[in-house]
């Protein structure tokens, strides 16, 4: 039945549209010539150049550090926010909290960046903290906007979860805190992991907000890439793109493959139990 053949064609065209530019990037990262768009033979020299670029390597270090701490902070705050919104229903000010969780998802980055910078400046004036801007201010900014994403991911898992499991634990005498740590948390753990990973990639990827709230010595990877890209195409950036794309793709497919294997093993086990 070719009932939706038009949409199927659009799907394949859309996937080509999404992947062709990335594929071209990867192919031309192995180009000998500095002129990125003209093929002049195979070479891996741009990868070597990349490894000798100290400014870039420093920025990678900064970005990874910020991303790690932002993702961790966002998971704690986002999980708390999601838990509060799904389990303590209709407390005073819940509407405002909901709004503050969903608005960052769509808020233009320039506004978030500008507003946070102005906050930090005002705080420095008023409280003397933060002195200047740097890694800490980027961490706060990233934690804040990533919290929203984590809350959405964890929130949807929490509301899918069978609440009677928690009620059963409470009925058997566990205190609310015990219920949270011993029952709820293990069940929503996969959502916490995917929330953490999402926050990690979002933080790693952010240019605009970081540009506003960063200071000297806290240049992140996107900021280095941006200043280079502004000047035009460069084979080094192609090499960097290839590394990022390969890394993300292999990580994603490894975890997908692992999840599928676990699922298959579970199904086999179920069938074996049913058969016997």
């Amino acid at each position: 039945m070719n009932r939706f053949s038009f949409s199927r064609m659009m799907l394949w065209l859309g996937l080509v549209f999404l992947y062709a530019p990335m594929l071209i990037l990867i192919i031309y990262s192995f180009n000998e010539s500095r002129l990125v768009t003209v093929w002049a033979g195979f070479s891996t020299k741009w990868y070597g150049e990349l490894l000798r670029n100290d400014k870039l390597l420093d920025a990678v270090g900064n970005s990874l550090q910020i991303a790690f701490f932002s993702a961790s902070g966002a998971v704690v705050l986002g999980t708390l926010a999601a838990y509060v919104l799904t389990r303590f229903r209709g407390f005073k000010g819940s509407t405002l909290l909901r709004g503050m969780i969903t608005a960052p998802l769509v808020m233009p980055e320039v506004i978030t960046g500008l507003s946070l910078l102005l906050l930090f400046v005002a705080m420095a004036q008023l409280l003397g903290w933060p002195e200047g801007r740097g890694m800490t201010t980027i961490w706060i900014a990233h934690t804040t906007f990533c919290t929203a994403y984590v809350a959405v991911v964890v929130g949807s898992r929490l509301s899918e979860m069978d609440m009677s499991i928690e009620e059963a634990a409470r009925d058997l005498g566990a205190s609310p805190i015990k219920v949270f740590f011993q029952i709820t948390l293990p069940i929503i753990a996969p959502a916490l992991i995917s929330g953490w990973l999402l926050a990690f990639t979002l933080s790693l990827d952010d240019l605009v907000i970081a540009s506003f709230v960063s200071g000297p010595g806290s240049t992140t990877l996107p900021m280095v890439v941006f200043s280079s890209v502004r000047l035009g195409v460069s084979p080094e950036i192609n090499a960097l793109a290839t590394i990022i794309i390969t890394l993300v793709t292999s990580l994603v497919f490894a975890s997908w493959w692992y999840a599928r294997r676990v699922e298959k093993a579970r199904k086999r086990e179920m069938q074996r139990m049913l058969a016997s």
Binding site: P21, M22, A241, I244
Partner: peptide, 11 residues
């Protein structure tokens, strides 16, 4: 999930 900046750069 890959870099936004680099995907724009590709164009």
């Amino acid at each position: 999930w890959t870099s936004f900046l680099i995907r724009i750069y590709a164009w």
